[in-house]
């Protein structure tokens, strides 16, 4: 059997990269954000468009999952009504930690143009939100930029620690 002798000091260096656990974990987390399909209204269509042919979300490692248990990002795309509020909380509670929430569009941010009896005036009354995307409806580019900002936020966080409880309103 042939014995291979590799001189690590000369042949391209050690096959080892030195880094911190934080960086490795966050590198993995930030580049495989699986999003829960939470299309509620019009913004949900733009969310689908960002996942479809032209805007192609898979490039970011963002894949839409239909189950809260497999996803770590909830993109609340659309108007949250009072009747639905209960369910968004249920689904949010089912997501494993660490988890993030993007509130997409004016309706999800503040109730938007629907200043009525039936609309929750911002999803942050029910679940904590990490990122607010303005627009009615935001373009797919906005959502992509939002996901990139979220990646940045993830990379800046400590990987090992449990997430701090996020502030609700």
């Amino acid at each position: 059997m042939a014995q291979h002798q590799v001189n690590y000091t000369q042949d391209g260096g050690l096959p080892v990269a030195l880094t911190t656990i934080d960086k490795v974990v966050n590198w993995g987390r930030s580049n495989s954000i699986w999003a829960l399909t939470y299309g509620l209204a019009c913004c949900g269509i733009e969310m689908m468009a960002s996942g479809a042919s032209r805007y192609d979300f898979d490039r970011y490692g963002t894949i839409f999952r239909a189950s809260p248990r497999q996803s770590e990002l909830m993109i609340v795309a659309g108007t949250l009504t009072k009747k639905h509020a209960e369910f968004i909380k249920r689904l949010y509670d089912q997501m494993p930690e660490p988890r993030w929430v993007i509130s997409m569009g004016s309706c999800a941010n503040t109730g938007g143009m629907f200043n009525t009896y039936a609309t929750v005036q911002g999803v942050d009354r029910v679940i904590p939100v990490d990122l607010y995307l303005p627009g009615c409806a935001p373009r797919p580019e906005t959502l992509q930029y939002g996901v990139m900002l979220l990646q940045k936020k993830i990379r800046a966080s400590k990987a090992g620690k449990a997430q701090k409880p996020k502030r609700l309103m």
Binding site: K82, A85, E86, T116, Y117, A118, V120, V126
Partner: peptide
């Protein structure tokens, strides 16, 4: 008689429920 932005019960509906 019902205002556009809802009454007291409507304003706190989701908070009370959740």
């Amino acid at each position: 008689t019902y205002p556009l932005i809802g009454d007291e019960a409507a304003a706190w509906y989701e908070v009370d429920k959740i």
